[in-house]
């Protein structure tokens, strides 16, 4: 009995030490990526290539999901608001939910599973097939040449994708409520415009998505670069990227929201 308690405490201790060690490793790696980012900006072609893979290829899923999320919001919002006779406020509901929360958060979650996992798998496989070591032996730093461009491409893509998601959602809501159901077009837009504030809603949503972009790509490149060089290692790292970034996105969202909308209605 006593032994069991001791070993239980020991395993808790082991896990804590392990995760702190990993956190330290991740922070150190993040610093290295930032320090070695010079190459990415001197040779911007490297980042452009990665923008294609993380940004352009995520576009379809972002556009389609944004459209559907907006349509659902419009439909549900209309059903509820109609009971109170204020269905003209549906534009406000759709826009505020998208711009403040759903746009940055859902786009980041999709981005983590679409682009984040791809980044991890690619870097992990490059490591497993000794490409990173080969590069280091050719006197080319793999962090500067491989990791940093992917990181910056992700950081640039994320806010753009979140904005596209929100706009698609607002037009999706427009499609359902104005064109299908018949809410007045003018009130859809004007109610939205009078309720949505540039600085508080749109700028804050934009800042949120920048944070998410940094978090998701930092996790993705870290997991890839530190993946054990085996098939299971890479697949485990890919799963961890999606799980960790999703949790970090949601946690970070709460913290950022608390900071940004504190004291304001």
């Amino acid at each position: 009995m006593f032994n069991r308690i001791v070993s239980g405490i020991r395993s808790i201790g082991h896990r804590v030490i392990e995760s702190i060690w990993r956190l330290g490793l991740a922070s150190r790696f993040f610093m290295l990526v930032l320090l070695k980012s010079g190459t990415s900006f001197r040779r911007f072609g490297l980042v452009i290539r990665e923008l294609y893979y993380s940004g352009v290829l995520s576009l379809i899923i972002i556009v389609v999901s944004g459209l559907f999320v907006g349509m659902v919001l419009g439909l549900q919002g209309y059903e509820t608001l109609q009971k109170y006779g204020s269905e003209s406020a549906v534009g406000t509901l759709v826009a505020l939910s998208l711009v403040r929360e759903l746009g940055p958060v859902v786009a980041a979650l999709l981005f983590a599973s679409r682009a984040g996992s791809a980044i991890t798998a690619e870097i992990g496989l490059m490591k497993a097939t000794e490409q990173l070591e080969a590069m280091a032996l050719m006197a080319v730093d793999p962090i500067a040449r491989i990791v940093a461009p992917r990181f910056w491409a992700g950081v640039i893509s994320m806010p753009l994708l979140a904005a596209i998601f929100s706009v698609m959602g607002i037009y999706g809501g427009h499609l359902v409520t104005v064109i299908f159901i018949g809410v007045d077009e003018g009130s859809y837009w004007s109610q939205m415009q009078s309720a949505v504030d540039f600085r508080f809603d749109i700028l804050n949503g934009f800042i949120k998505s920048c944070f998410f972009g940094v978090a998701v790509t930092a996790i993705a490149v870290f997991e890839g670069y530190n993946a054990p060089p085996t098939a299971e290692g890479v697949s485990g790292a890919t799963t961890r990227t999606v799980v960790t970034s999703s949790l970090v996105i949601l946690g970070l969202d709460f913290v950022l929201t608390a900071f940004m909308f504190r004291g304001v209605s």
């Binding site: 923008l51 596209i164 929100s166 837009w189 540039f198 749109i202």
Partner: peptide
């Protein structure tokens, strides 16, 4: 494609600022 992507993204930001955020 990357240029197109960035243009679409910036347009989306403009729509949010001008049309939605007024």
């Amino acid at each position: 494609w990357v240029g197109l992507f960035v243009l679409i993204g910036i347009t989306a930001l403009m729509i949010l600022s001008m049309k939605v955020g007024n």
